[in-house]
Design a protein around this nucleic acid. Structure first.
Lengths: 246, 246
DNA sequence: TGTAGTCAAGTTGTATACAAGTACAATACA
DNA sequence: TGTATTGTACTTGTATACAACTTGACTACA
């Protein structure tokens, strides 16, 4: 209910709809809206101080992304990522990472970009001290955003962005049960290797690194999903929690 | 103004929004709404006998697809596909065709599917007699739909569908100036080879065939765009026709 | 005649009233 | 007590009135 929600209306560059879209998408990806949560259009309209109309525009876009599902008379619920979809998205994302290196090259890499990525690296190190899954997931979101920005092929960039947010919350869902230091180390490795490849101007290696890490992450997730107790499986797969807030 | 517009409201399986979406998308792809056309929400609402609200829902989705662009006070215009986007989409689609064979296999191939594809093949032969670019484009759309249906990976299927409609009208735009019998023959070849590969259950070959044909089509398009007169380039690239109808 | 200004008729974006549908609880009744 | 039913309070979907904005034509004026 009282998560860290910074209502940022100072994003003047993006349109209002775009700002609200990214905000709600981030909340879904960070499990502030867990799967099954019923999102009330009226509540969101009141929070963002607009009418239902722009909110509906955002929710319709999120529904096209597969993140929510609107049903007349019921409500708009955050979707659950089933294992089949997870495998499909991961398989496609791995292939897309491979072709990213072939369709895109490292261009317009500024010092700010490098500095921003090294900032991510530093925050990774700090993560070892305190166990905060949501914070780590948020950090990985910013990392993803930084990398996707360097994809030159615009349709590929858009697809990569969409696919990432479609399933990234699964990792966060089981992160509390995983080996914390191992996950932080793995992420640190990926960030480090990506920075090195970007510095060398080798987008092909960037894609390769990300594909390998994606593959290994899927393996770790499967391991926890496969050897999970029934209660843990319920928490990930068919849940219908009702964490409404207003 | 008086194009062949069959207002099909008998599609009871899809929702109303879905039906209108596919109808307008088809019109854009067939150049019944050429680039630059201003689509009036009121006119569309009157034609489909609904209010502006569901029409806006459809237009917003088309805008996310990159097919139209809404500007306050101006209108909703059909976008123009510039050469850069064309190359990017084609490059990505070629790669996607390659990975389609790796992520998807030929499953649930019924006799009706084969019959439907052979029907496309027959209609190809009939195309040689009369020069009707829009009819050929419509036929290619149905072919594309038949093939995409057999992609098992759902996110890949969705992406392939979207990317196809993003640029397929470029071919139709220059089709009147191309070698008609050559284009029909090339299309017949692709359909024929795809049918053969599907019969053999070889999705990998399907992807390969489609990739090769896509590559060659891009070459032919570039040839016509490169050696085109200024008038022809204007017709394809930065046009701002205003073919409003109401 | 030329030019600036103003008004009118469009457009999309927003807010809101209403229609359609669902779920749940209270109530009437056996 | 148990059960069916009905009403109420929610939800999303639709239609509509209004606000914000653009364009072009027409008018007033120098």
């Amino acid at each position: 209910m009282n998560q860290k929600r910074k209502l940022d209306f100072n994003n003047s560059s993006d349109s209002l709809s775009q700002t609200i879209y990214k905000e709600i998408r981030e909340r879904i990806s960070l499990l502030q809206y867990p799967p099954g949560t019923v999102l009330s259009e009226n509540a969101l309209a009141a929070e963002f101080e607009v009418s239902r109309t722009p909110i509906r525009r955002v929710l319709q876009r999120l529904e096209l992304d597969g993140l929510v599902l609107s049903k007349r008379g019921i409500g708009t619920m955050v979707t659950t990522v089933d294992l089949k979809s997870l495998k499909e998205v991961y398989a496609l994302r791995m292939k897309l990472h491979e072709i990213t290196g072939e369709l895109s090259s490292v261009a317009h890499l500024t010092n700010d970009d490098i500095a921003s990525l090294e900032n991510v690296l530093e925050q990774c190190d700090e993560m070892l001290e305190q166990r905060d899954p949501e914070k780590l997931a948020r950090l990985y979101n910013t990392f993803q955003e930084q990398i996707v920005r360097h994809i030159n092929n615009e349709p590929l960039r858009e697809v990569s962005d969409r696919l990432y947010y479609q399933t990234c919350r699964v990792w966060l869902q089981i992160l509390p049960d995983m080996d914390w230091s191992e996950e932080v180390d793995v992420m640190r490795d990926e960030v480090s290797q990506v920075i090195e490849a970007l510095r060398a101007g080798d987008m092909h290696t960037v894609g390769q690194v990300r594909r390998d890490h994606l593959f290994m992450m899927l393996g770790r997730i499967k391991r926890y999903l496969g050897g999970a107790t029934e209660a843990e499986l319920d928490a990930v797969l068919p849940s219908r929690r009702s964490t409404n807030d207003e």
